[in-house]
Amino acid sequence: MLRFILTRLSILIPTFIGVTLLTFAMIRLIPGDPIELLVGERGLDPARHAKLRAEMGLDRPVLEQYWHYLTGVLQGDLGKSIVTKQPVVDEFFTLFPATVELSICAMLFAVALGIPAGILAAVRRGSVFDHSVMGAALTGYSMPIFWWGLLLIILFSGILGWTPVSGRISLLYFFEPVTGFMLIDSWLSGESGAFKSAVRHLILPTVVLGTIPLAVIARQTRSAMLEVLHEDYVRTARAKGLAPWRVIGFHALRNALIPVITVIGLQVGVLFGGAVLTETIFSWPGIGKWIIDSIHRRDYPSVQGGILLIATTVIIINLLVDLVYGLINPRIRHRR
């Protein structure tokens, strides 16, 4: 097990270097100059412009800039935002809880609906329910997030007026962040209605972000269950006289979960990708929106640092998923 973790960790370093290289190159490939974007319409005289460039180190050869950046990263220094002059790490961790909160809710939504739907579809294979679930999953999977988000906003916020359009909580409420998670903070604040408001703000983004994972999980659960339901040990479970819910929900599901867990882990990366779009649609003040804004402003250090930290998070989560996988699959746990 320890060796397994160490091997996985050793892959981290080349991955890191790859991510730094990619983000560094890509943000510079987009035309545009951060200083010009910063000063906007007013313009800047060339001398001052050159001075600012030199201050930010943008006048050096690109390779030297990269080397400077990389050595900084290796010492744990991700640099400062060109725009706000704040350390990138600080900005990231101020906004990160918002993204984590949204992602966790989206994943819970996807798992809580996807696994039961997949099980039922497999058990009632070929039924109307099965066909509806699979049809909905296919639709959900192919629905562009932007389109889907706008559709829901038009219906639930526009026509029905049930949910707010943007932000994490109504502007009526203000309290100091404790954990950074709005659901918890609003609860702790004790202000009446704050928690409810936070929940109402979360619903649509959660649904939008959770739709693709939901579709993938439902399909994977269904196909894993279909495979498992024909196994001999399921017949044995029935031969013991166990009730159907126990045969399906315990003996079969436990085995079917093994591939499903893998898929859930892979969806975490997809989730962060989707968060960028979802946060932009709903003006959700999280990492996704921050990175998009930083790209617009050509805030090189923020984009590089933000993507690097997100990539690290994804890698760590995948590692954790692999560990969980080992825990629920005895055949892996005992292999040396």
């Binding site: 196994e231 001999d232 040990y233 017949r235 044995t236 479970a237 029935r238 031969a239 013991k240 006289g241 166990l242 003996h251 436990r254 085995n255 629920i328 699959n329 005895p330 055949r331």
Partner: peptide
């Protein structure tokens, strides 16, 4: 009655037991 008064064993012992338990 099933599994209590009438019990059954099968041909494939390697696949008839649940690998997860």
């Amino acid at each position: 009655l099933t599994g209590k008064d009438i019990a059954m064993i099968f041909q494939e012992p390697m696949t008839s037991l649940n690998p997860c338990f």
